[in-house]
Amino acid sequence: MNKLTTVDASVVCSTGLVRTSNEDNFYLNGLFMHPHERSQSIRLSYGETCREMIFAVCDGMGGEALGECASLTAVSELKDFHDTIWAGKSCSDITGMLTLMEKYVDKANKSIYEISAQNSVSMGTTLAILLIFDGQSAVLNLGDSRIYLARENSLEQLTVDHTEAERLIRLGILTRHTAKGHKSRSLLSMHLGIPPQEGRIEAHTGCILPLKRDDVFLICSDGLTDMVDDDEIKETIQACGESSHMASSLAQRALQNGGKDNITVITVKIEDICYIV
């Protein structure tokens, strides 16, 4: 028996207070930011009831037009893959969606690298994707854009940062506290746009989780998490009811704390899960 999920989702995508361009992009179940929209802060809300959905954040690297191109390529390729799923011929469960996303990661990585090589420049983008299918969720990521799950009174990071700082934490060389100000926190070990000759990249994939009513997923770039700590994130989500209020409040906190980078925040609130025959 299949399940339909009703979501209340919103995105805020802002240049921030220091950068002059926006290298971030997002994917809101089919919607993403086009080049002509980059000069303004984007605020969108989305409500839907369906069997499957995809949400994502990409944080481009390479500087101005290069980072913008990388993140735009990533979300454009994601739209193409999502259209294949919508056609109803590619997967029958969330495991199938994850398999399709492996193919997407390979294709997007190759596309970004080829653009980079053709122009003799270096560029790339992080990737954090939330999948919803038949009342279940799964996440995958490359880089340091994150996905959190706020459930009841807890906040859990579902993704793993692909940074040098995270590697040093795992080795016991840095603590979570000392890593916050360490230069290695911005050194990425994985992202889209890595040369194929360096090997096939594999995104970190989280556990498949059953959805619960009132779950809130947060997908964000480091423009949020570098400015707002987990306790503030949890407090802000708990204080808000609608996803648009959550996304706006989180982005505003990042701006109040300095807004040193582009800020992209997607909040996805699970309103209901129901069975269909």
Results as ranks from 00 to 15, higher is better:
Gln197Ile: 05
Gly259Glu: 05
Val268Gln: 04
Lys234Phe: 03
Gln157Met: 15
Glu37Thr: 02
Glu271Val: 12
Leu100Pro: 05
Arg176Ile: 00
Gly206Lys: 02
Leu188Asn: 08
Ile42Met: 14
Asn2Leu: 13
Asp231Tyr: 12
Val216Pro: 11
Glu77Met: 13
Asn141Glu: 09
Met227Trp: 02
Arg19Gly: 01
Asn2His: 12
Gly88Leu: 04
Ile208Gln: 04
Thr5Tyr: 05
Val57Cys: 06
Glu164Ser: 11
Gln40Gly: 06
Pro35Ala: 15
Glu77Gln: 11
Met1Pro: 03
Asp161Arg: 09
Asn109Val: 00
Thr205Val: 15
Val160Asp: 10
Ser122Met: 09
Phe26Met: 02
Glu198Cys: 09
His162Cys: 04
Leu149Gln: 06
Leu100Cys: 08
Gln252Asp: 13
Ser76Tyr: 08
Ser244Phe: 08
Val121Ile: 15
Tyr275Arg: 14
Glu232Arg: 12
Ser21Met: 08
Leu44Pro: 00
Ser243His: 02
Arg43Tyr: 07
Leu155Phe: 04
Ser145Tyr: 05
Gln136Phe: 12
Gln136Leu: 09
Gln256Ser: 12
Ser45Gln: 13
Glu198Lys: 15
Ala251Tyr: 01
Gly88Val: 04
Lys212Leu: 14
Asp106Pro: 03
Ile85Arg: 13
Thr236Asn: 09
Gly62Ser: 10
Gly62Arg: 13
His82Phe: 15
Pro195Lys: 05
Glu198Phe: 12
